[in-house]
Lab assay of single mutants.
Amino acid sequence: ETKSLTLVLHRDSGSLGFNIIGGRPSVDNHDGSSSEGIFVSKIVDSGPAAKEGGLQIHDRIIEVNGRDLSRATHDQAVEAFKTAKEPIVVQVLRR
């Protein structure tokens, strides 16, 4: 079962304390579909994302501050987090 969660993150020394993997390839599949998503791959101990109620590894990131990342490329997702103003509201899907 997958549930949708909304989390609020604040940077600590400029970092949110997690890494992402995935992202849509720069070239779409011929039918326009994509199974890619942006997923949390690593969480830094005691970083902002590790706090209670924070992110978990394998969370799929859907949205950052209202910006849809469900079909974003990896670079677009990285840029969305880099430029996001605080508080950073992150919507994820968690299995």
Rank of each mutant, 00 (worst) to 15 (best):
S46A: 12
T2G: 08
V89D: 03
I21S: 14
L93W: 08
E63V: 06
G23S: 07
V8Q: 13
E52K: 11
A72D: 03
I61C: 01
L5T: 04
K3H: 12
G17P: 06
A84E: 03
K42A: 11
R24D: 14
E36C: 08
T2K: 15
I57T: 08
I61P: 00
Q91G: 06
D28E: 10
R94A: 00
D68Q: 04
E63D: 10
H10F: 10
V64I: 06
G22E: 14
E1R: 06
V44G: 09
G22L: 07
R11L: 03
I43Y: 02
I38F: 03
D12I: 15
R67I: 14
R71G: 09
D59C: 00
S15K: 12
L16V: 15
F39K: 04
V92K: 03
E52S: 13
G17Q: 04
G14I: 06
G66H: 05
S70H: 09
P87F: 00
G23A: 08
I57A: 07
I38L: 05
G32W: 09
I61W: 02
E36N: 11
T2Q: 10
A72N: 02
A49Q: 10
S4G: 05
V92M: 01
L93V: 14
S26N: 13
S34A: 13
G32V: 12
E63G: 11
I61R: 00
R60M: 05
A49G: 11
H58I: 02
G54L: 11
T6S: 08
E63S: 14
E36W: 06
E36R: 07
S46G: 14
G37I: 01
S26E: 14
I57R: 06
R71D: 15
L5E: 04
A49M: 07
H30Y: 11
H10I: 06
L9Y: 04
S41K: 05
D75K: 08
D59Y: 00
D75I: 07
H30A: 13
S33K: 15
L7G: 01
K42R: 13
N19T: 13
R60S: 02
A49N: 12
L5G: 01
S35Q: 09
G37A: 03
H58C: 06
S70A: 07
T6Y: 05
R11W: 02
S46C: 08
D68L: 02
G23C: 08
P87Y: 01
I20G: 02
D28Q: 10
P25I: 07
R67Q: 15
V8A: 08
D31M: 10
E36H: 10
A84F: 01
I20H: 04
I57Q: 07
E1Q: 05
A49R: 09
K42T: 11
S26D: 11
L93I: 15
G17K: 05
E63M: 10
G54N: 08
G22M: 09
S26F: 10
G37D: 03
A72H: 04
I38E: 01
G53D: 13
